[in-house]
């Protein structure tokens, strides 16, 4: 059976809609909060993302604030990250401290990784997914 994991943030429209899509299409997924991300897990995810760890982070402070209107501390770090002032190692450390900087949803089976919601990508990714084991030995 295929194992999928989702990192989300409640109240983020993309994250909520992706969760609804998975539920309404009968696809089991382990739902985690983005705030549960550990340093090790961020390293593991960063290794799969084309473009590396920076692609896990909001591209600018405006889009970050749309989803996190009350968070301020992160904004300085997002600027530093996106201006290329930090090493991958430093970015990973920062993300582990401020997980809100990671875009949600992140959906992965540790082969493929989806960041954000796009209907067509969901449909093509989950074609042939196996959701229940009915042929146990």
């Amino acid at each position: 059976m295929d194992k999928w994991v989702l990192y989300g943030k409640s109240g983020n429209p993309s994250s909520d809609i992706a969760k609804a899509w998975l539920k309404n299409n009968g696809i089991p997924v382990e739902e985690n909060s983005v705030f549960q991300l550990t340093k090790e897990e961020i390293e593991r995810l960063a290794a799969i993302v084309p473009g590396g760890v920076r692609k896990l982070v909001y591209p600018d402070t405006f889009s970050f604030s749309l989803i996190n209107p009350q968070k301020k501390t992160e904004k300085v770090h997002i600027e530093a990250i996106q201006e290329g002032e930090l090493s991958d190692e430093e970015v990973i450390e920062l993300l582990a401290t401020y997980p809100a900087m990671a875009m949600t949803p992140i959906i992965t089976n540790y082969d493929t990784i989806l960041i954000g919601y796009d209907l067509d990508t969901m449909v093509s990714t989950f074609r042939f997914v196996k959701v229940k084991d009915v042929t146990l030995s």
Partner: peptide, 12 residues
């Protein structure tokens, strides 16, 4: 089966 979308309208 449902019509698709994130509600997968009428799928269940």
């Amino acid at each position: 089966r449902g019509f698709g979308g994130s509600s997968n309208f009428n799928g269940r």
